[in-house]
């Protein structure tokens, strides 16, 4: 059955989308900041994996940790040094700031790595297999599994650790959290760092599947937007459901209307959703 194949493709894609969006969603939900940098963080993660593979032969799946760590430090620094200064300002200001930082970073990547598309060619890709006549490429399945694992790890980090509890406290009520002795600025920086970590890790994951270029960052950002609106803000399960939905929708949309319309379809869907349910399909109504 062709539809099962399309569904399977959609789910594999969707798990990656969830992973792309979950850090973005966290930052938006907790800090009330739209992080335009998110797409660039993902691309940066891919480059880390690319160079680690080329110069040290490190498998991209191992680089997930390296990229995550590097991006965490970077995100932490950006939030502490810049965004924290205007965190209470209106939407326009924080969004513009992240846009400005993104211009700098993306331009730096263009200069350093050029706009050429690069690809990691694994010498021994995982074998593909077939289940009930559904074709499953090994590397994609592995990437999907790791993406789901990362998402679940983030969920437990938020639920079961002190850092996670502090983040959730800040999300619920900034002032109350401050009164309870939470160092809000530090939690902000950690949250932004975790958002960047998830982006970097995702970037390393998808480097085995997609070609790498700084030009891709806006496409990743677009996906993160759509997933957030689909699934609702700031919740890990929301991002997961939103990502899987978008993956499946794009997969079927591409099959029925042609792959060149997939982007238009997902954006069209987003506009309809914003019109009808601005808080996401699962979420409550938004912040403002």
């Amino acid at each position: 059955m062709i539809y099962f194949q399309i569904l399977a493709n959609g789910l594999m894609l969707g798990a990656l989308y969830a992973c792309i969006a979950v850090g973005f969603s966290l930052v938006w939900g907790v800090l009330n900041v739209i992080n335009i940098l998110h797409g660039t963080f993902i691309v940066l993660g891919s480059y880390i994996a690319f160079f680690a593979f080329r110069f040290a032969g490190i498998h991209p799946f191992v680089s997930v940790f390296i990229a995550g760590f590097v991006l965490f430090l970077m995100g932490y620094a950006i939030q502490s040094a810049m965004i924290n200064r205007v965190i209470a300002a209106p939407v326009l200001i924080t969004l513009t700031l992240t846009f400005g930082i993104d211009l700098v970073l993306n331009n730096a990547m263009l200069v350093a790595f050029s706009a050429d598309y690069r690809k990691i060619n694994l010498p021994s890709p995982l074998p593909s297999f077939e289940v009930a006549s559904i074709f499953l490429p090994g590397d994609r399945v592995a990437a999907m599994g790791l993406a789901l694992l990362l998402t679940i790890l983030l969920y437990f980090l938020l639920r079961a650790t002190n850092v996670g509890r502090a983040i959730i406290a800040v999300r619920m009520d900034r002032e109350a959290a401050a009164l309870m002795g939470v160092d809000v600025k530090r939690v902000n920086a950690i949250t932004f760092g975790i958002g960047a970590l998830m982006a970097g890790a995702t970037g390393a994951l998808i480097s085995v599947i997609y070609p790498i270029s700084p030009l891709n960052s806006s496409a990743f950002l677009g996906k993160a937007f759509v997933v957030c609106v689909l699934g609702g803000l700031g919740s890990v399960p929301g991002a997961l459901v939103g990502g899987l939905m978008l993956g499946v929708l794009e997969s079927f949309g591409g099959f029925w209307f042609g792959p060149e319309h997939a982007v238009t379809l997902s954006f069209g869907l987003l506009l309809i959703l914003l019109f009808a349910r601005p808080g996401g399909l699962l979420g409550k109504r938004g912040y403002e």
Partner: peptide
């Protein structure tokens, strides 16, 4: 690096001259 330069202008503007 003109995009980066514009980015720097934006950052300075937002942080120091809101």
């Amino acid at each position: 690096v003109h995009a980066a330069a514009l980015g720097v202008i934006i950052i300075l503007l937002v942080l120091f001259l809101p």
